[in-house]
Design a protein around this nucleic acid. Structure first.
Length: 562
RNA sequence: GCCCCGCUAGCUCAGUGGAUAGAGCAUCUGCCUUCUAAGCAGAGGGUCGGGGGUUCGAAUCCCUCGCGGGGCGCCA
């Protein structure tokens, strides 16, 4: 049996579509909404269901139950993977025990590759995430974008994309200049300017600069600040890199904003926009805006932004937007990524139309810039006592709770929900984190396999899968059957939070399966009968591989013992 | 004022127009001499923010109102 990369859902969907065609439906099919069967008692509706009868009633001018009945009669599921039953206007599908057993054998043999696909066709894409102003350590709020971004990368890699992880290092904007000025002030034993950075780390960086940049103290501020700024940013970048590394996150490139000026990319982008009439001067500044676009048909995307935006200030200084123009050129032209995925906090949502407009104005397809917005992480007020206030950095959170629970905590929430972060609760409840439930299931499976090899040094080479008959055994197999479609949906929708919810379900099935052996010793995996042991081990192996794979996709470890 | 996100069980949250809306935590009741109890089995708990509309069918789509969060700068 082959493991369909699209999984069993795709198999059934194809069979259903063919069946509908065989009824003589020529027109475009409505969405038959094949999905997991919901509701009902004791799985009476099977595993998958489609309201195909209801959907086709209009087209065929026939009663839904009649259509569903006819479909059930003609449908042919490959490999006898499922049985079919019409109930009302629905067509219900139940995975067969036989197919589930074969699936287990395939997954066990496949190892951790189960669910992997080449859907992406090797598409080269870049994911830029968590490009926080490098002016200080990451705090708890920054954890969300980093973990979300990295998990999206993992999903895309697993589904056949060529992914590059990038951090855009702001170095020439207002905030980083303030940062540089603050370091300059500390270097000379003064207080940072208004709106500057006051943390202890600023002083530490100033002291380090005194050693590493000989003569820096003698320079006037105009000359010293840029040097100090680049030095300080480098220091902060190193710290950020170390912090995210603790969360299993490794960037491929730290792309400095300064590079778009040194390489001439930004001026080139500006020239291009000027030539195509997207730029104009007003009040001594240079503006980008759709107000000029009437000269030719430049498309909806350019019109999306309804206000002009400053590119070069009247004082001659470029805005961040000017840098971004060069940055876009670097990614879509210089480096030639097919798509760029941006992971931004919701506070940047107003920037989306502007960037899309810029992409279009530079001559690229705005669809190639995909922006994932996630809502904010708010620190619960009142919890931030002086003492607790020390634990606002991501490093400190990882110190207190550990990387795995932190990743799991963030990944459980869809990007659309605002997180109210309760620090005390996070710390006191960290041992109740659902991550342990999943990891424990994995560790149990490993342990069982170890026990088996001790008790039965010589087991049959091949497993007789027909020995798997109990509902709790087949339920584990059933969960395994769902994995490919979970991965596909998560990758297609760029929604990693689907993974931990699946892991929860799989772990539940595993724990139930394991626990059957606590109730009745004949139901243990390791029993006197080596044939039976062998078959159950096959199931353990398949489940273990799949758990491991799912945890990997979340960047969470799969411990062998707990 | 305009734009984006949210409002689902006591709490935190899943839920791509389908059937009787789910999970974890919390609460209550059971289960460890034998492969890991960080586990298992069971119970209670819901006008899916309010009101209209579209549809054979709405937590899901549309309109409207309310509440909470975010944004609307020659900041990023």
């Amino acid at each position: 049996m082959t493991t369909p990369s699209g999984g069993i859902r795709e198999l059934i969907e194809d069979a259903l579509t063919s069946a509908v065609r065989s009824l003589g439906v020529e027109v475009a099919l409505p969405d038959l909404e094949l999905g997991r069967a919901k509701g009902g008692d004791r799985g009476e509706r099977g595993d998958y269901a489609s309201p195909a009868g209801l959907k086709l009633a209009k087209v065929l001018r026939e009663a839904p139950p009649s259509i569903a009945g006819r479909l059930a009669g003609v449908i042919s599921i490959p490999h006898d993977a499922a049985t079919v039953e019409a109930v009302g206007g629905y067509v219900n599908f139940r995975l067969t025990a036989d197919w589930l057993r074969r699936l287990v054998a395939t997954v066990a043999a496949n190892g951790p590759g189960y669910g992997r696909s080449q859907l992406g066709g090797g598409e080269r894409l870049q994911v830029e995430f968590a490009s926080i102003n490098p002016t200080g350590p990451l705090h708890i709020g920054h954890g969300r974008g980093t973990i979300l971004g990295d998990s999206i990368c993992r999903l895309l890699e697993f589904t056949g994309h060529d992914v590059q992880r990038e951090y855009y290092v702001n170095s020439d904007n207002t905030q980083t200049r303030r940062f540089g000025a603050s370091v300059y002030a500390r270097l000379h034993g003064k207080e940072p300017p208004e709106g500057g950075y006051t943390g202890d780390y600023v002083t530490e960086i100033a002291e380090a600069a005194r050693r590493d940049l000989p003569g820096i103290e003698g320079l006037p501020e105009e000359e010293a600040e840029p040097k100090l700024r680049m030095y300080a940013i480098q220091k902060v970048v190193e710290r950020i890199s170390a912090t995210v590394a603790r969360l299993n996150i490794h960037y491929d490139e730290w792309f400095w904003e300064s590079r778009v000026w040194e390489s001439g990319l930004a001026p080139r982008a500006i020239d291009r926009l000027r030539e195509s009439g997207y730029l104009k001067e007003r009040d001594g500044a240079l503006w980008f805006g759709p107000a000029l676009e009437e000269e030719d048909g430049l498309g909806e995307q350019v019109l999306a932004e309804d206000e002009d935006r400053v590119v070069i200030r009247s004082n001659g200084q470029p805005t961040y937007f000017a840098s971004d123009l060069g940055y876009l050129l670097s990614r879509f032209e210089e480096r030639g990524y097919n798509r760029v995925i941006e992971v931004w906090g919701a506070d940047h949502h107003g920037y989306v139309p502007r960037m899309k407009s810029a992409v279009a104005a530079l001559g690229f397809d705005p669809e190639k810039l995909v922006v994932i917005l996630h809502q904010m992480v708010n620190l619960k007020e009142g919890k931030m006592s002086k003492r607790a206030g020390r634990f606002v950095t991501l490093d400190e959170l990882v110190d207190r709770v550990g990387s795995d629970p932190v990743r799991y905590f963030y990944l459980l929430r869809s990007p659309d929900t605002t997180i109210e972060f309760d620090l005390e609760l996070a710390i006191t409840q960290s041992n109740e984190n659902p991550v342990y439930y999943a990891q424990y299931a994995h560790a149990r499976l490993v342990n069982v396999e170890v026990t088996a090899s001790e008790r039965h040094p010589r087991l049959p080479d091949r497993a007789d899968m027909s020995l798997l008959v109990h509902p709790w055994e087949l339920d584990v197999a059933r969960q395994l059957a769902f994995w490919p479609e979970i991965v596909q949906d998560a990758a297609r929708l760029l929604e990693p939070h689907r993974i931990p919810y699946y892991v929860q379900d799989l772990a539940t099935a595993v724990h139930r399966f394991y626990h059957a052996g606590n109730e009745t010793s004949e139901h243990r995996v390791v029993v006197d009968d080596i044939e039976l042991t062998r078959a159950r081990l096959e199931l353990c192996r398949a489940a273990r591989h799949t758990l491991r794979t799912a945890l990997d996709l979340m960047g969470v470890s799969a411990p062998e013992r707990m």
